[in-house]
């Protein structure tokens, strides 16, 4: 039986590798997706926003 959470993690890692995202970017995306599964309630918006902004900033720095 496949653990869907693990599967999701592994899929995200594969896609990030394929797209050439650095580890820190991959970590944030994984946190966004898998953190929501381990908590009894949805991640608070403020926390999500902070993660998304960090992701955006890292992407900007990578591109620039």
């Amino acid at each position: 039986m496949v653990d869907r959470n693990k599967d999701l993690k592994s899929q995200i890692e594969n896609i990030c590798k394929r797209e050439g995202y650095e580890t820190s970017i991959q970590k944030i995306i994984l946190e966004l997706a898998t953190e929501s599964l381990t908590r009894s309630t949805q991640i608070p918006d403020a926390e999500l926003k902070s993660l998304l902004q960090r992701l955006g900033l890292k992407l900007r720095n990578t591109v620039e």
């Binding site: 999701l8 995200i12 998304l52 960090r54 992701l55 992407l59």
Partner: peptide
């Protein structure tokens, strides 16, 4: 806002593709 948008777009693309596969 620009960082937020960039982050949302990238995270959405990656998570969407992962979910489709699963």
């Amino acid at each position: 806002l620009r960082d937020l948008r960039r982050g949302i777009n990238t995270a959405t693309e990656v998570i969407e593709e992962a979910l489709d596969t699963i």
